[in-house]
């Protein structure tokens, strides 16, 4: 075996003119975090809406929500990334499409965040739906019987509990979005795995590059895990064991 192990390479200047290699990785880590967080914000918003939609007593809305979740869950993320990057702008009116392609700032970042957001939203929606359905039916009925409107019932009774119940399953979805963001290297997002590839290509320090990037991902996963555990403790519903499934 002929493995190069020169940890000093991290301090060496990269030939891309972007500073030393550690800085390349640092830039990559920042893009990974930015993409994951932006995508997550979108996923929470859309996922909650779709999740609620699927539990509503209006058939067309519930069907629409189900259809969205099924479409997104049954097409690979990579294909969806390509779709949003290459196909989508062609379907838009020409001017808007051109803006999307040329003038939109950070096109690969925005596309990746959007694609990841839509993708993860389907998973969030699934959790939100099962969170809502896991509540005792009596609560919703009681609220309606007390004269609450349906929106009031959701806002004041169902959702505050459902959101606390879904925090544990959402932890793994939150971790997934960090991991899934790596697929965005295929559309040229200069995230962490992209930078590892660059570093391997330019420096040829395979082991060092891999070890450094793997460590960064593990630190991220650990941080997310701890953060969500803290949130889970804070939001536990009194009287329920563990507050979830």
């Amino acid at each position: 075996m002929d493995l190069n192990l020169d940890w000093g390479v991290l301090l060496q200047e990269s030939p891309t003119g972007d500073g030393p290699y550690w800085q390349l990785l640092w830039t990559g880590a920042k893009w990974t975090v930015a993409t994951a967080l932006t995508g997550w914000a979108l996923a929470l918003l859309v996922g909650s809406i779709v999740g609620v939609m699927r539990t509503l007593p209006y058939k067309p809305l519930a069907w629409l929500g189900d259809a969205y979740v099924e479409v997104v869950r049954n097409i690979p993320l990579l294909v969806q990334l390509f779709f949003w990057f290459f196909v989508w702008p062609e379907l838009l009116p020409r001017e808007i499409g051109l803006w999307y392609k040329q003038d939109m700032p950070y096109p690969e970042f925005i596309t990746a965040a959007l694609a990841l957001g839509w993708f993860t939203a389907a998973r969030v929606a699934e959790q939100v739906k099962s969170g809502i359905l896991s509540l005792p039916r009596g609560q919703k009925n009681a609220a309606l019987a007390l004269g609450f409107t349906l929106p009031q019932t959701y806002r004041l009774v169902v959702l505050p509990q459902a959101f606390r119940i879904v925090i544990p399953p959402l932890t793994s979805e939150f971790m997934n979005i960090f991991k899934n963001s790596a697929a965005a290297l295929a559309i040229g997002l200069t995230e962490l795995t992209f930078q590892m590839k660059q570093m391997v290509e330019y420096s040829n320090e395979v082991i060092v590059s891999i070890a450094a990037v793997t460590t960064i991902y593990m630190v991220m996963a650990f941080a997310v895990n701890r953060g969500m555990a803290w949130l889970e403790r804070k939001s536990r519903i009194p009287g329920m064991i563990g507050g979830g499934r």
């Binding site: 290459f86 062609e90 051109l98 392609k101 040329q102 096109p107 690969e108 040229g188």
Partner: peptide, 20 residues
Amino acid sequence: NLYGKDHDDSFLMLETDRAA
């Protein structure tokens, strides 16, 4: 700066006006 994962992707970006 944009990056295509291969020449096909890069050319596609030019073809579709994503890159000038």
